[in-house]
């Protein structure tokens, strides 16, 4: 099954990189960011790519996780683990109460509502200086430890985040090919028909919204401990947009596509640094041209191309390459 082969391939990649290039900046630093972004993109893709509910505010959930961990561990001296759980509970609860009114909206209105929500959260993080440290953020966040195994080197963080990413990818792949995953995809295809087949679409939408938020919160907590510093910039509107771009760039409704998009979008700016002043401009130009020439996303687009070349008729199981134009 290609689905599983893909997973082995990804695992192999994650394992081999640090062995082949130990102490390489791109592996131990950039790849760790890419891993976190991949977790976020995969979770957003569940909501956006599969269930068809666009969200321009996903970074807010990431921020909630990051800040809950940061605040509880630095200001209240909590152990990181319960802090992480507290972050997920808080984020999940907020997401749950947001989900109903927000997901009633469609299309651009939904985009606007999620965008507004993300900005509101960000403004609160900037303004509630007493709690969040305001624009300067919070520092000196302790690192994680697993039964005494301190995650205190870049390589160890690579291992932790790499495994988390693989876990999230594995869970997402399973979910999408399960009964609940079909329900998600079905409501994207036709909400009435999904209802008529017995799917409680409101509950399903709420469920996937909360689930995506929980994963984002987890990623946020990991981020906080890994960077040992959080600031409102790390979860602002631009980051939300960046996450959406990762999903779309890789190709909507493809878990591997989301991972791919996250990797490309994390590495690209690092590579463009050599262009100095031209960096921003070139980044914009690349983004535009990629979407113009591969509107289905790079990963999915290339996958389709490959398929056409090898004359295979059917798509990878569970990875729907495209929706009707």
């Amino acid at each position: 099954m290609s689905q599983r082969k893909g997973f082995y391939l990804l695992t192999l990649l994650v394992v081999l990189l640090p062995l082949l290039f130990p102490d390489n900046y791109f592996v131990t630093v950039v790849a760790v960011s890419a891993g976190l972004n991949a977790i976020l993109a995969v979770s957003l893709n569940l909501l956006m790519g599969y269930a068809g509910q666009i969200s321009l505010g996903h970074a807010a959930f990431f921020g909630m996780g990051a800040y809950t961990s940061a605040i509880l561990t630095t200001k209240f001296a909590w152990n990181p683990w319960p802090a992480m759980v507290a972050g997920m509970i808080l984020t999940g609860t907020i997401a749950f109460f947001m989900a109903r009114p927000v997901l009633k909206l469609k299309g651009h209105y939904l985009a606007m509502a999620t965008l507004g929500f993300g900005i509101i959260i960000n403004i609160i993080l900037v303004q509630a200086v007493g709690l969040t440290g305001g624009p300067d953020g919070l520092g000196e966040i302790p690192t994680l430890s697993f039964f005494g195994w301190q995650v205190d080197t870049d390589l160890r963080w690579y291992i932790v985040i790499g495994s988390c990413m693989l876990l999230v990818v594995w869970l997402a792949l399973n979910l999408i090919n399960s009964r609940s995953g079909r329900a998600l995809r079905a409501l994207h295809g036709s909400e009435v028909a999904a209802e008529m087949m017995g799917i409680d679409t409101t509950a399903t939408k709420t469920g996937v919204f909360v689930m995506a938020a929980l994963i984002a919160s987890l990623a946020g907590s990991l981020f906080a401990h890994q960077q040992s510093f959080v600031s409102p910039d790390s979860c602002d509107f631009f980051f939300s947009i960046e996450l959406v771009t990762m999903v779309v760039l890789g190709g909507m409704a493809s878990t591997y596509g989301a991972v791919f998009g996250a990797i490309v979008l994390t590495f690209l700016p690092e590579l463009l640094v050599v262009f100095e002043d031209f960096e921003v401009m070139i980044f914009g130009a690349i983004l535009m041209s990629m979407m113009i020439f591969l509107p289905q996303g790079m990963f999915v687009g290339m996958q389709n191309l490959l398929q056409r070349l090898t004359h295979r008729r059917s798509a990878l199981p569970g990875e729907d390459p495209n929706e009707p134009a």
Partner: peptide, 12 residues
Amino acid sequence: IITIGASIFLRG
């Protein structure tokens, strides 16, 4: 995303 790319481009 294309329009976002364009906005980044113009800012650049």
